[in-house]
Simulated scan of single mutants.
Amino acid sequence: MTTAHHSGSGDIARSLQLLWQGREQASRGPKPTLTLEGIVTAAVALADEEGLAALSMRRVAATLGVGTMTLYRYVPGKAELLDLMLDRVNGPGEEAGESSEEEARRLGELGWREGLEHIGAGLFRLYERHPWLLQINQSRPLLGPNSLRGFDLALSVLEGLRLTSQEKVTVITIIDSFVTGIARAHILQRQVAEQTGISDEEFWRAQTPIIEIAMSSGCYPHVFALDEDAFSLSNEETMRFGLARILDGLASFLDSRNAD
């Protein structure tokens, strides 16, 4: 699957400068009417409410009550703004409205398994709050301070375990990939109901005649042997069940290594 947007698609050096140093303050001239933080906050709110397709320098400027050219004094363009948005929402504790220090303290109180469960659940909720994240190819992420801090905290959960550096990165990648996949299905399911105006219940009810024919044919014995509640788990419950099984496997792997 391809996406129209990807991190680092603008001036990488400029994005990194803004991420780590902020906007350089001019020694002369009028006092700035905006802040970089305020611009990013407005952009994230716009994407949350209307989707990534609505995001433009013009729309963000209008939201802030300034001209588009004023915005360009702070951010070179939409691509760099997107990099700033990604680092903002990928910060540890963002989904719970916590600071990175609070998130670090919370993780420090948990064991490795509970810590990874907490991280996985937080990632799922992050996509719920910012579904536009799923439209961005982040396979080559820019190393902003917030995203790098989040990665560091995830690694801290694995501290002390008999895992190589490669294995630690792989564990984090597996969890990220699994949760992102379930979150994608969850968001798409929610979006299709909103876009069509047809609920899941109505959609499946419309297929009842075909289901009855298929059932009576006897060609699909395993499908129709399923209990009535086979599909009743929510997407979040499915995510938690799958994540628990991944962690079961990791626990077994660690037990076998520790027994050596």
Rank of each mutant, 00 (worst) to 15 (best):
E117V: 11
T33Y: 01
F224V: 04
G51S: 00
Y72W: 03
T170D: 01
D260V: 02
L71Y: 11
G51A: 01
A183L: 06
E103F: 01
R245K: 05
G77M: 05
A259N: 09
R113N: 00
I182H: 12
A193S: 13
S232G: 10
S217D: 04
S156M: 06
I246N: 06
G67H: 12
E159I: 12
E109V: 02
A259H: 03
I210K: 15
L107H: 03
F253Y: 13
R149P: 11
R140D: 14
E95D: 11
L46P: 05
R129T: 10
G120T: 15
L71K: 08
R205E: 12
G65V: 04
G181N: 12
E80Q: 09
E236C: 06
Q189W: 09
S165F: 02
Y127T: 14
A13L: 12
T208Q: 15
I246P: 00
Y72S: 00
G8T: 09
S9P: 01
T3N: 09
I39A: 01
Q189C: 07
G67S: 07
S15V: 05
A54L: 04
K78R: 12
N146E: 15
E102A: 04
R73C: 02
P131N: 06
L64D: 00
M1C: 03
S147Q: 13
G38E: 01
A45V: 03
L81P: 11
S15N: 14
V223H: 09
L142S: 13
E102Q: 15
I172Q: 13
E98H: 10
A13Q: 14
C219K: 15
Q191G: 04
H6E: 01
M69W: 02
A214P: 01
S199K: 13
A183Y: 08
G197F: 05
R205N: 02
M57H: 03
A193M: 13
I12A: 04
G160A: 07
G160L: 12
S7C: 10
E98K: 15
V89A: 08
S99G: 13
F151S: 08
A79S: 07
